[in-house]
């Protein structure tokens, strides 16, 4: 017997989680922008969005993060490590693609060095995914072998009930189980009719893409120059991507004291690879664009056995020149072989 969370019990759940010490974060729309933000009640949530403009990644890997405070004295250097808060958090209403993004980035942040800033937040967060009831023209989870009800990265998966009255619950982890225990008296036993999943057409053949990218001859292909012609080299597609994870370390302050920060960086920027000498090995937009695609569908795969893309479609949805990865991967799929 599965259990059901009724929409009209959501406020009570939020209250119960909050009194158990959790912050509750959900999709919100504030100041003309949708993102994950803290909520007090269900009416603060924007659960009907296909996807928030900003990703859930921001809540684990913020755009700027203080690491160390330092002071350089005459005979010594004082420093203080700044660690992220250990606040317990529930993320309610995460889309399957965004939750997958967290799981995709876990091995990266835990690879040769365990990034405390990422894992402290990960370990204190419970991800409640809601399967999609709608998709738009840019969604492409199915092209990267995920789906509108993918459970990857989630602790609990909710499926919307047909009549809109609530969600059917699937518990996926111990953390998810513990979260639901807090609200067990508010849940119903039963099976409802769940909303049919939206049809998300496959836009490209990821196997073909990976094969072409893995061919050393593809690296210098004219293809990159042609496809990247209109890319203006902003950081929009990387910064809105749920898996892009590159950062830069910057010291902010004066000669004697300051704060060392970890700031988002983007392979779309010329400065990303600029050497101190002024030489830039990726000195054209096409070489930068190639890097973005190669990293996601070749290098990351080689290192961690998974592609660094959830198919969320944000890179195409908000690209100022209607680019993003979709067109490139379609074009690679259709290359004569």
């Amino acid at each position: 017997m599965t259990r059901i969370l009724l929409r009209n019990k959501l406020d009570d759940c939020i209250a119960a989680w909050r009194s158990a010490g959790f912050s509750v974060l959900a999709p919100v729309k504030r100041h003309e922008m949708s993102s994950f933000g803290e909520v007090q009640k269900s009416s603060d949530m924007a659960l009907d969005l296909v996807l928030t403009e900003r990703t859930i990644k921001d809540q684990f890997f913020p755009q700027t993060e203080p690491l160390i405070k330092y002071k350089i004295g005459k005979h010594q250097i004082d420093s203080e490590t700044m660690t992220p808060p250990e606040q317990k958090r529930v993320f309610f209403g995460v889309r399957p693609c965004d939750a997958s993004g967290l799981a995709i980035d876990d091995p990266l942040f835990g690879w040769d060095y365990k990034d405390d800033y990422w894992f402290r937040r990960r370990d204190n967060s419970v991800i409640v995914t809601i399967a999609c009831a709608q998709a738009d023209d840019f969604c492409m989870c199915t092209s990267v072998k995920l789906s509108p009800d993918s459970a990857k990265g989630a602790d609990v998966l909710l499926r919307p009930l047909l009549e809109g009255s609530g969600w059917q619950i699937e518990v996926l982890s111990e953390r998810g189980k513990a979260l639901l225990e807090i609200v067990s008296s508010l849940l119903l036993e039963g099976n409802g009719h769940t909303f049919p999943l939206p049809q998300v057409a496959e836009k490209f053949d990821v196997e073909k893409v990976m094969e072409w990218l893995a061919d050393p001859a593809s690296f210098e292909s004219q293809f990159w120059k042609d496809i990247a012609l209109r890319c203006v080299g902003c950081g929009s597609c990387t910064f809105l991507c749920p898996t892009c994870h590159c950062f830069d370390i910057q010291d902010e302050g004066d000669t004697y004291q300051g704060i060392r920060r970890k700031n988002w960086d983007s392979c779309s920027f010329a400065n990303f690879t600029m050497h101190t000498s002024g030489h830039n090995p990726r000195n054209t937009q096409s070489t930068r664009w190639r890097q973005r695609i190669m990293h996601k569908f070749n290098y990351y795969q080689g290192k961690f056995g998974v592609n660094s893309c959830t198919g969320c479609g944000r890179c195409t949805r908000q690209c100022p020149v209607d680019m993003g990865i979709t067109e490139t991967l379609q074009a690679i799929t259709n290359l004569p072989r």
């Binding site: 755009q63 203006v232 080299g233 902003c234 950081g235 910064f239 809105l240 983007s266 100022p320």
Partner: peptide, 8 residues
């Protein structure tokens, strides 16, 4: 988010 899309 300092994506610099406005500038680009």
């Amino acid at each position: 988010i300092k994506c610099y899309a406005c500038r680009q």
